[in-house]
Design a protein around this nucleic acid. Structure first.
Lengths: 98, 98
DNA sequence: ACACTAATTAGCACTTTTGCTAATTAATTG
DNA sequence: CAATTAATTAGCAAAAGTGCTAATTAGTGT
């Protein structure tokens, strides 16, 4: 669903996605990276989950959150569709143009 | 600026961008496509302009709004960066994969 | 069953966003 | 310069979003 954009509209949520890029994490792990309370992070994670941008899996006593790459890709492709063309085909990492 | 995401978070604003895809339009033109008042559209256009997603140019008695492709591309690339890879490299137009 | 750890849900205050009507600005034309 | 057309800005009410503390759920081990 396209409330993915709404989910992406908050800096903290984008940063959460960025942190999940390096691997799945619990809400406790993530809370340490921010200056807000645990319930607030939990709430953001819920928003991200509703937008299918992350998945949640219980693992024993913890709940582990992971990035849902396919939906992010979908959203990004939607933006490219908006401008009617594919991106300038990046290579591998950070090769910035002169 | 990354409040582009905030600007993209409203359905009407995304639809405005979609309409601008087929060419520049005035706020009057755009208002006809929606069930909201002209000032409301004007307000949305202002949000899009603040986020640099559109440009506004006065043309005589009218003000013409156009898509700012480069910023949209930037945002889309940012999303791809989040998932760590480039898109599946589309060709030219609508060649959907089998 | 009880305690402990991990995390969510509930309820509330505060801020931001949205969309309306009314008023205003700006360019054009008689 | 008054009238007309195009559009914005102002001001307000209603709705949604944010983030807190307190309370609750859920698993694990004793």
């Amino acid at each position: 669903m396209s409330n993915a954009f709404k989910a992406l509209s908050h800096p903290t949520r984008r940063e959460i996605l960025n942190l999940l890029k390096s691997g799945p994490k619990t809400s406790g792990d993530l809370t340490e990276a921010f200056q807000v309370s645990w319930p607030t992070i939990s709430n953001h994670l819920n928003t991200l989950k509703d937008a299918s941008l992350v998945t949640a899996d219980r693992e024993g006593t913890s709940i582990v959150y992971s990035l849902n790459a396919s939906v992010l890709e979908e959203v990004a492709l939607g933006l490219f569709d908006l401008i009617g063309h594919a991106p300038a085909v990046p290579k591998k990492k950070g090769e910035e143009p002169s």
